[in-house]
Design a protein around this nucleic acid. Structure first.
Lengths: 252, 252
DNA sequence: CCTTGACCTTCACGTAACGTCAACGTCTCT
DNA sequence: AGAGACGTTGACGTTACGTGAAGGTCAAGG
């Protein structure tokens, strides 16, 4: 039997057979005078063995190990581990499909809506369309969603929750609009301090406390720095004054 | 922001960021005088976009396509297709796990038991242990299991089914033993013809008819040739005579 | 005898999504 | 000024083969 026949018999390509020879998974058979590999039925059986293990999902390295230590006590443990791995894969795929299902159910599917569904709702609630400041804030939150660890994410989601109440939303949108408007002002403009005070007043006590607490963490300050680097000086000053106010409020 | 900071922010490695630059998924930012890449928040947002799509399971090529045609009508269709693909993967993994579960439930797990479960039962039923002829027959069947298309496999499984009846098994084992014993005999030995006749008589009418019919196919004859190449001349003669007898029986 | 076509041989690069050196420059801190 | 952290480009390694390239073998037919 030559290589093409063997391959067809087992349902693989000749390239696969030679690959297995190269890896030592299948012994090289005798050659004909012309240099062709000359296979026997036994080789087909061995090749079929390898294929069955491969189709179960073992890597070729694992297969070599299993074949090496004859009479497989190792076989059982490898297959057990493989099963656990497959279970993990199933979970991962199920999670992806769940996210996909939520996304596909959405009417206005676009690249920004591919954030996690809970965050998507949050963004939709607390920010008006067409605002530069809101856009920046959205960017920040979506970054935190993508990059931060799940625990920190939970914390942040909980922190912003109070702002989704319908009355808070109205005021929040108004403040956001004023934040946009103040971009060109001078940092010493009295409007800046006024807006900062109103912003501080807008935040519920629990949220203010949570923000002050999180400012202890270097990472949070880092996020704020990042945000500041994209804002106008007057806007940065608003945030600075607001944070100061919140800290004072927390001390009392 | 330099590359390490950006990468940490989004939760990837610097290598990944540079890889995305190389593929054109992420624009190259301006450089510092020292030659370092200098990122803005915007870049982090773009990188996070890419990551979210990648984590959904899109390939980087697909992501580039999706990002390219802005305002994604394409996005929805890509995600829909992706979902279908994931569903197929789930099915495939479930099937593998099902096979694994059967294998792991087995007590004497070894490399030969990794054939499909229904075939495993069949092999166990119709062949005695310690017989060279039975071993060869097992090899042939496991090869058919691995390499043949599902339709042909079904056909063969059905064909051998009658032999698993308990009375047929006893006679089958006895005949197999005699097949082993006759290996060294001369093909013209009267025992050869006798054994062939008994073998033919052993097969139920339906199975005999199925075998004769399948001999029309070149592939079946090929399998027989393969088998013959591993048998002693007397054993080949037994099979030849048996087939002749079956054909005559079918003509009547 | 020569060709054609089907098959075989080895060698070696391509795939996806990065990981991991190597060899070297830059920045920051002490 | 030296050390250590971080950046730069370039290139090879990973998995399980696919896909030529360049050429040898073999059976059939003109």
């Amino acid at each position: 039997m030559r290589i093409g026949e063997l391959a067809a018999l087992v349902g693989v390509t000749t390239r696969t057979v030679r690959h297995y020879h190269h890896l030592g998974l299948l012994p090289e058979p005798a050659r004909t005078p012309g240099g062709y590999r000359d296979y026997r039925l036994r080789d087909a059986v061995l090749l079929a063995r390898v294929r069955r293990l491969a189709e179960l999902g073992l890597s070729l390295d694992e297969i070599r190990d299993v074949l090496a230590d004859d009479q497989g006590r190792e076989l059982r443990e490898v297959l057990t581990e493989l099963d656990a791995d497959l279970a993990r894969q199933q979970d991962a795929i199920a999670a992806r499909r769940a996210r996909l299902a939520v996304l596909l159910a959405e009417a206005d599917l676009n690249l920004d809506t591919t954030v996690a569904p809970d965050l998507g709702d949050l963004l939709h609630d607390i920010h008006p369309a067409g605002s530069a400041f809101a856009a920046l804030d959205r960017d920040m939150l979506s970054l935190i969603d993508t990059g931060a660890d799940p625990a920190a994410r939970e914390q942040i989601m909980a922190m912003f929750q109070p702002l989704t109440a319908s009355d808070a939303r109205g005021r929040g949108h108004a403040l956001t609009a004023r934040m946009d408007a103040i971009a060109g002002a001078d940092p010493s403009d009295p409007q800046v301090a006024a807006l900062a005070a109103e912003f501080a007043a807008h935040l519920p006590a629990e949220m203010a406390a949570a923000m002050v607490a999180s400012l202890e963490q270097a990472e949070t300050r880092h996020w704020l720095d990042l945000m500041a680097s994209e804002l106008a000086p007057a806007q940065v000053e608003v945030l600075r004054l607001m944070v100061t106010t919140l800290k004072e409020r927390a001390r009392c």
